[in-house]
Design a protein around this nucleic acid. Structure first.
Lengths: 236, 236
DNA sequence: ATTAGTTTTGGTCAAGGTGACCATAACTAA
DNA sequence: TTAGTTATGGTCACCTTGACCAAAACTAAT
């Protein structure tokens, strides 16, 4: 944008390369308890640096797509998923993030619905991990995931983001399970329902969820609007 | 210069250039009412595109500095100021932000204390404007300022960011004036003081501010910690 | 010296929200 | 029919918030 008045030595150095990465969250039932827990897909690095380690899905920025489009494309290419929520997380630009070159990564975070997540591609080099049980990742990706988790918890407490981890129809107990999984603490069912019903974000449907060994819960539908990032300018 | 002479194919081959810009807020007394209001410095563009229009201070990213360092340096170079608060705002990467080339701008926002702001450089090509009375700016900078204002209001309501617009010692009424200027509405003095005193962010001093034509208010000091960005990892 | 004018500071009160908890409703499984 | 389970509605004490009142402590003017 600002035509550079850079001196010769600055110009001779290669420009910092620009990459897009994505932290993708989805709910999957825990093997042990069966309750929904947070999972995310990682890709195995097949070249140096950090060859063999797991890393966030990402790639270079193409010239013909916006940042968000690049994140969505990359997300689809590595996992086969279409996100129900996608938001910019942060631009990471520390000097020594990669040992071989200076890289600036613009990181997005995404939520995918469980129906989608069940169909996700998984292979030798793409695998899902529990968000609270990651090993050592490549680059600074552990710190990035930590920050994405912090952001998710924040958005959950204030915004109306939980519904993007669920399908179109859901019970209030399912919403509560999302909160309990993300915030990692139990919530009182009666109080939680009272709070949810005071928001304008959801509406009752006439349907009930059958099949449980208990009173069938009413199904609800999300009617709220997504947040208002600079990217998503489609608001009231 | 590759930017102006590039044809389509050359342009697609060149990597998107990466720039750093900063939205700098400071309080200055309004000429009319005398009450503190939000101001920010802009620089006049001296070349195309948008030659002659006002724009946010910014420049290219040097290879030897982190994103935040680049923002701080740029801030100092254009205004002579040292910020008391500096946080990443957003990475703007739309395809047509600049008519001549693809530019990704990583934008920071900053707060400077009034003692600093009074000494700020001002010249033919650097001038301060009231944040609520900007004209048409270059590029997408109007939208960027709008988003920075939204973020400032948000951080003010939740976080403890107001103190960075004040000096080391301040009265509770001065804090209230900051809130009133940023949120643009009157606040009850008694209720506001009750809320502030319930936070652990400030502490009383033994000093009082003399010179008003009324009961001298007690001076307070900020003791809280700044937020916890990925960049600022110096927290408890 | 007294009074008026100003802002600071402490207080009350009703309204609304929150967490802890209880009780009933409505289903399934035995 | 009964036990087990979750859904759903309700109460109650506690806290926070906004509206408002009143006294305190200074200056300026009479």
């Amino acid at each position: 944008m600002y035509s550079s008045s850079a001196n010769v030595s600055e110009r001779q150095a290669a420009p910092p390369s620009l990459a897009i990465s994505t932290v993708i969250f989805a709910l999957r039932p825990s093997e042990s308890s069966g309750r929904p827990t947070l999972w995310l897909p990682l890709v195995r690095r097949i070249r140096e640096p950090y060859k063999g380690l797991w890393a966030l899905p990402g790639g270079p920025l193409s010239h013909t797509e916006s940042l968000q489009d690049a994140a969505a494309r990359n997300l689809g290419e590595t996992t086969g998923l279409a996100p129900s929520y996608l938001e910019q997380l942060y631009a990471f630009g520390g000097l020594h993030r990669s040992p071989t070159q200076r890289v600036v990564s613009i990181v997005y975070w995404a939520l995918v619905q469980p129906t989608e997540a069940a169909l996700a591609d998984e292979s030798e080099n793409v695998r899902w991990f529990r968000a609270d049980r990651l090993g050592d990742l490549a680059f600074d990706h552990n710190a990035i995931v930590d920050y994405a988790l912090w952001r998710l918890r924040n958005k959950l407490a204030y915004g109306s983001v939980a519904y993007h981890l669920l399908g179109e129809y859901f019970t209030l107990a399912q919403v509560r399970e999302v909160y309990e999984a993300v915030l990692d603490r139990q919530l009182d069912p009666a109080n939680f329902r009272r709070q949810l019903k005071s928001t304008p974000d959801i509406e009752e449907t006439g349907e009930y969820l059958q099949g449980g060994k208990h009173r069938p819960p009413r199904l609800y539908r999300f009617t709220g609007r997504p947040g208002l990032d600079p990217d998503n300018r489609s608001t009231p």
